[in-house]
């Protein structure tokens, strides 16, 4: 999907895209943390109707509802700020040797330095999981670390 990003000096950033049904939709991320959702009008494609305005908290909640990919994106933001840090998701296969084992038993951080910062299970996200958190096959693990560290985690989990 094509998302156009437009800088609004002093206000924030606007993201714009077209839905399959033909509606042209925009999201204005304002500097103060609020979000405006707008839909462009058919009779004047330059004008937009504001559908709703969300506070920072509401937008976070909506993002969580809309799904886990957003979590990865947020770590992607973080990794952009710190050179050398990257994030990735690794899917734990069903029947893996860690299926049903605690997160701590993978010893991922000890061995690679990379951290598993979130476990995405279906439409449910466990942010910052404790070592006792039991993993299940089909979980998506969000890993943050160096490139080689993440490769190491992938190696451990998929071996």
């Amino acid at each position: 999907m094509d998302v156009t990003e437009i800088l609004l000096p002093g206000v924030g950033v606007r993201y714009e895209f077209q839905t399959v049904s033909g509606a042209r939709v925009g999201v204005v991320a304002k500097r103060d943390g609020e979000f405006d959702f707008v839909r462009y009008e058919r009779h004047d494609p330059d004008a937009a109707e504001t559908l709703l305005t969300l506070t920072r908290d509401e937008a976070d909640t909506l993002a969580e509802i809309l799904g886990a990919p957003r979590i990865v994106e947020r770590f992607a933001d973080l990794t952009r700020e710190i050179p050398g840090l990257v994030s990735s998701t690794i899917d734990l296969p069903v029947g893996s040797r860690f299926d049903g084992k605690a997160l701590g038993e993978t010893r991922c951080r000890t061995l690679t330095g990379a951290s598993i910062v979130a476990v995405v299970r279906g439409d449910h996200v466990i942010a910052s999981p404790v070592p006792d958190e039991v993993l299940h096959g089909g979980d998506s693990l969000v890993v943050v670390g160096t490139t080689s560290g993440i490769e190491g985690v992938r190696h451990i989990l998929l071996k």
């Binding site: 437009i6 800088l7 609004l8 000096p9 002093g10 206000v11 924030g12 606007r14 925009g26 204005v28 304002k30 405006d36 707008v38 462009y40 494609p45 330059d46 004008a47 937009a48 504001t50």
Partner: peptide, 19 residues
């Protein structure tokens, strides 16, 4: 912001002139 025009297509040009 009062007229809810932050999403309008001409808004970036208005803001750029101000900057």
């Amino acid at each position: 912001s009062d007229l809810r025009r932050t999403g309008f297509r001409e808004t970036p040009s208005v803001l750029s002139v101000l900057v």
